[in-house]
Design a protein around this nucleic acid. Structure first.
Length: 113
RNA sequence: UGAGCCAGCCAAGCGAUCGCGGGCACAGGGCGGCGACGCCGUGCCUGAGGAAAGUCCGAACAGCACAGGGCAGGGUGCCGGGUAACGCCCGGCGGGGGCGACCCCAGGGAAAGUGCCACAGAAAGGAUACCACCGCGAUCGGCUGUCCGCCGGCCGCGGCAAGGGUGAAAUGGUGCGGUAAGAGCGCACCGGCGGUCAGGCGACUGGCCGGCCAGGCAAACCCCACCCGCUGCAAGGCCAAAUAGGGGAGGGAUGACGUGGCCCGCUGAACCUCCCGGGUUGGCCGCAAGAGGCGGCAGGCGACUGCCGUCCCAGAGAGAUGAUCGCUCUCGACAGAAUUCGGCUUACAGGUUGGCUCACGAA
RNA sequence: GCGGGUGUCGCCUAGUGGUAGGGCCUCUGCCUUCCAAGCAGAUCGUGUGGGUUCGAUUCCCAUCACCCGCU
């Protein structure tokens, strides 16, 4: 998945948090910053406040599935950090997918194929 | 039929499509490389738990002496066994609870010493005598006066600890005898203690004898017995890359470092520590065949052990299980491996197997 | 992953085995024309479950929550 490389290291996280913009709804917070690489790099954050390990793993898997399904529509060079919020624990799948896509569209990262 | 006790097992299932981690294969395809090969791709196989959890114990493994002596510190604590080891497990003993099946118990030492036992109470420990009880003496009063005698008050000397009262706890309990009043003072039974004999590997149990001398708390300090070196896979090892190994202060064969809270001992080097200024933030091994699972036979009451057969069962590195659809049922709990095992503890919808107890009914 | 610490009224805190104390807050009363301040009084607590002890905030065990280090 060349178009979905991971983001690593606290320096890269700090760069996105400080230099980037953010959008949010009840399911997640999206931080985004142009990276000039031509590829989309992304990372998911599920804090301990969200729940126990089973809950955090399930949320991360569902978020990752959203990115996988829509990776063809993600264009340009962006660094993304998606942070899960409380609603993501009990939200049904259509709500999660719809919420994340809405955030990506709002940020201008999402292009119709 | 109802109520209950103990032990064990399972942890929704089946199918389709798209995706993820790991392993193996690839003759053909794409990219890189002279090449071995790597990446992509394709095919097949495989992919969380009974607690993976809490991190409360024990070990393996690794480094430092194949971890040694002492102090300090910590842990364990009825007996016997199991185990690599344990604070775990099994079988007993003693105590407590339940009609019972059965369950629970940190359960050594208080005649080594220190300390504590608030309030109440006379007294909280080798202590004491408040009220009371009894004897003797003196004195006062009453019985009309005196002697004698009797009754009562007060004082002194002495006896005693049965009764009252306090407390969680006061030198054993009940009964009879005994006495001035009383007391294990004597006797019987019970309880405790000591001795002895018998049984048992032992904890302990039972019999006999002695005799009443010994309060509680050690999850208070402590004593005794046994155990414990420290650090932890981010241990430790190998390879590659990078800068410049630069400047200052202190220590070092009078022994740096290892080394831990300390001393000794051991090891054994030309380094080490701090400050200033810089570089790196990769890859591989450890890393999964093990005190392993399952089945059978044998030994043992059992924990467990021995032998034989058989199986290979996650291995990531920002961290693999998700999405959609169809069907079935009782509509699904607690919950996600990170070096690996053995335990303990805690969380938990339900389903299921075996054994046992009590109550009622029938035969 | 490894190691350490803390839980006491609504908030901040004392308390090393013997009645849980103080300040702020809240309520009531007094005072004041009224409010504030002041004075007097009251309510409210040992995170949870066991154990040791006559008696536990204190000692022991388990558990829950939170916090802080190392990497």
């Amino acid at each position: 998945m060349k178009e979905l490389e991971p983001l690593r290291g606290s320096e890269e996280f700090q760069r996105v948090f400080k230099g980037g913009r953010s959008l949010a709804n009840r399911v997640a917070v999206l931080y985004f910053l142009p990276n000039g690489v031509g590829k989309v790099r992304s990372a998911l954050v599920t804090s301990r406040k969200l729940g126990k390990a089973v809950v955090r793993n399930r949320v991360r898997r569902r978020f990752r599935e959203v990115l996988r399904r829509h990776r063809a529509a993600l264009g340009g060079g962006w660094d993304l950090v998606i942070m899960a919020r409380r609603r993501s624990r009990e939200a049904p799948w259509p709500e999660i997918e719809g919420s994340l896509v809405a955030l990506l569209k709002q940020a201008g990262v999402y292009h119709q194929p």
